[in-house]
């Protein structure tokens, strides 16, 4: 198939950046979206132009590295998928495709489609941990009984790969789905109770300091999340935070 691509090009963090049109031909419907980008980049390299920079790593939908805001949606039009798992069969011959970086003040563009998501790391550092003795005296996994229901919910929250699609898609650039998932995965387990009070306080404080917007419960994040993280995690974070604040 032949496509017209409208891609955000930005030389560096300080460059103003603009949308640039490219044409690619002979794209197979079996290619992944990133493979299509590879074809474009080879074309650009062969003609002596600067290839388009984009983030990618595992290319199997688990690392959270690939981003891209494709045709107005984070990770493109298919729900529950990362960009690397999006295939060209989701598009038609002759389509025009908009490809932009994940946009938020807290995700500054480094180059082209690559954004700096280390604000997520700083939020994790502020509270996304538990204090356990790792000196080698490993406790038996079943020594602390955990209800299956809670273990499942914690696992669902921990499925978050921190890709930032929630922020990119939110009309307010809010990071609450990410932080909600990271708070929840510990809040649901007994091991997470030791730091429970400070965790939500500190992670939310860091989230606010990073300049993410406020949540207005549109639910867009939940729809666009490649891992299907539920909005109920945000409610749990709200509970953890509000109850922690009055303790």
């Amino acid at each position: 198939m032949n496509l017209t691509l409208k891609i955000w090009r930005q030389k560096s963090a300080n460059d103003k950046g603009k949308m640039v049109d490219y044409k690619v031909a002979g794209i197979s419907e079996h290619m992944s979206f990133l493979e299509m980008m590879d074809v474009l980049n080879e074309q650009l390299i062969n003609s002596g132009e600067e290839p388009v920079s984009f983030d990618h790593d595992c290319r199997e939908g688990i690392c959270g590295s690939c981003s891209m805001f494709i045709n107005g949606e984070a990770h493109g039009p298919v729900k529950g998928t990362t960009t690397c798992q999006l295939h060209m069969r989701s598009f038609n011959d002759g389509d025009t495709i908009y490809i932009e970086p994940f946009r938020a003040k807290a995700f500054p563009v480094i180059k082209d489609l690559v954004v700096n998501r280390s604000s997520f790391d700083r939020i994790q550092h502020s509270g996304g941990f538990i204090s356990v003795n790792t000196s080698g005296n490993t406790q038996d996994a079943n020594a602390t009984p955990i209800p299956k229901h809670d273990a499942d919910l914690a696992m669902d929250a921990a499925a978050c790969i921190g890709c930032g699609a929630c922020v990119a898609t939110c009309k307010n650039s809010s990071a609450m789905l990410f932080v909600g998932a990271k708070v929840s995965q510990y809040a649901l387990l007994p091991q997470g109770q030791v730091e429970a009070k400070e965790r939500a306080q500190n992670m939310v404080a860091q989230m606010d300091a990073e300049g993410f917007g406020n949540c207005t419960n549109t639910g867009a994040c939940e729809v666009e999340c490649p891992k299907g993280i539920s909005l109920s995690n945000i409610a749990r974070m709200n509970r953890e935070f509000l109850s922690g604040a009055i303790k």
């Binding site: 409208k6 955000w8 950046g17 949308m19 805001f69 045709n71 107005g72 949606e73 039009p77 908009y98 932009e100 946009r103 938020a104 003040k105 807290a106 563009v109 898609t169 009309k171 307010n172 650039s173 809010s174 300049g211 993410f212 917007g213 406020n214 207005t216 419960n217 549109t218 639910g219 867009a220 729809v223 666009e224």
Partner: peptide, 23 residues
């Protein structure tokens, strides 16, 4: 404040794909 959280807007943003008009 929410408007400030995204300084450069998207060229293409499909809000209706994932959230209601009301929200």
């Amino acid at each position: 404040q929410n408007n400030q959280a995204r300084e450069v807007k998207y060229a293409m943003y499909k809000g209706s794909a994932n959230a209601s008009w009301m929200s």
